[in-house]
């Protein structure tokens, strides 16, 4: 299957899943109340995150132009290549030869006239790509980093944490040993070691981030499962002979969802920031803001200074992280009664 078809399918599946989860949450008064409280406390941050998700979603839906003879004549390389909705906001041949300042009409070096004078709102980079276009595309990479890693971390942590907490005994000892072993290695070093061994690439980087990131959530889940196991109604269900799996699925997992959501929100910004560091070490993901920042770092010492690449990527990164951090704080306050009490 071609990559863009797969991407479209995954995007559609995620959109359906998201819609289903939202519908489900709407029916539960507790979750509905939490959602409303979240929107009341942090309306701007929530909208910003939604905007990033929208941009990333639009960038994930791509198709190949079947009959575009016009494009063929101008730029042969684009022929047969899938272009996303975001790509289609820009002309197909929106590329210059080298650096140009925002809204410039000529190249920065050499003063050659641009193909699209005055059209590059945020200028172009070293190989002449439009910085605004790249920055928008970075949203998808950032959300893929956070999303794919969470898709590894959350099921793994739930599976390991719940089974260790529920079964206890030898299994718990073994899980605890594995967790303390992984946790004893400094995170960044472990991350580097994993990527060096697994190789670079989106999946590998997310896998490495997942392996370093699941222990924290698994610990929380394990401790919480211990507590839930001792609750009266869970004990009562066991006495009544309900199957263990059914109890876990019906009583334990739903009671862990708030922990999962809080951790996901708190984890997310850390993951995106980690990728920036990895990019800088040369083992990041192509097309990420981290890569753009990495490229931009030598540009500051040029004369005249090239600031737009760095400014665009780091601003996009900063706004996302700030919004996610604020949403995460609000999610924790809304969902975690302990901290809610502390605030009193």
């Amino acid at each position: 299957m071609e990559p863009h078809v797969l991407s479209n399918l995954i995007t559609a599946a995620l959109a359906i899943l998201l819609a289903a989860a939202l519908l489900r949450a709407r029916r539960d008064p507790l979750w509905r109340g939490a959602g409303r409280e979240l929107a009341r406390r942090r309306p701007i941050a929530v909208s910003v995150v939604a905007l990033y998700v929208l941009i990333a979603g639009l960038d994930s839906i791509a198709w190949v132009d079947g009959h575009a003879p016009g494009a063929k004549a101008e730029s042969g390389t684009l022929q047969g290549q899938a272009r996303s909705v975001i790509d289609r906001l820009f002309p197909a041949d929106f590329q210059e030869r080298s650096y140009s300042a925002p809204l410039a009409t000529h190249e920065l070096y050499g003063e050659e006239p641009l193909l699209h004078p005055g059209k590059h709102l945020l200028g172009t980079n070293m190989i002449g790509q439009d910085v605004l276009h790249l920055t928008l595309k970075g949203a998808r990479v950032a959300l893929v980093i956070g999303g794919l890693t969470s898709a590894i971390v959350i099921p793994l942590a739930l599976l390991v944490g719940v089974s260790a907490g529920w079964v206890g005994g030898r299994l718990d000892d073994a899980v605890f040993f594995v967790m303390s072993t992984l946790a004893s290695m400094p995170t960044l070093l472990l991350l580097i070691a994993l990527i060096m061994a697994l190789g670079t690439g989106t999946t590998q980087v997310c896998l490495a981030l997942g392996i370093t990131g699941w222990v924290g959530l698994a610990r929380l889940v394990r401790a919480e499962t211990f507590k839930i196991r001792e609750l009266d109604y869970v004990q009562a269900a066991r006495v009544l002979g309900t199957s263990e799996l059914r109890i876990v699925w019906r009583h334990v997992v739903p009671n862990l969802m708030h922990l999962v959501l809080i951790t996901f929100a708190l984890l997310f910004s850390g993951l995106v920031l980690s990728e920036v560091m990895l990019s800088w070490l040369g083992i990041g993901i192509d097309g990420s803001w981290g890569r753009m920042i990495d490229q931009a770092r030598s540009e500051l010492s040029r004369e005249p200074v090239i600031w737009w690449n760095l400014l665009a990527s780091s601003t996009a990164l900063f706004i996302l992280i700030l919004a996610v951090n604020q949403v995460a704080d609000a999610v924790r306050d809304v969902l975690d009664p302990r901290t809610a009490l502390e605030a009193l």
Partner: peptide, 22 residues
């Protein structure tokens, strides 16, 4: 604090070098 922790460490480094050093 939330503002400060939303900025990547790389930007502190790049910005610090640029501002203080250059």
């Amino acid at each position: 604090c939330v503002f400060a922790m939303s900025v990547s460490i790389l930007l502190y480094i790049i910005g610090g070098q640029y501002l203080v050093g250059r």
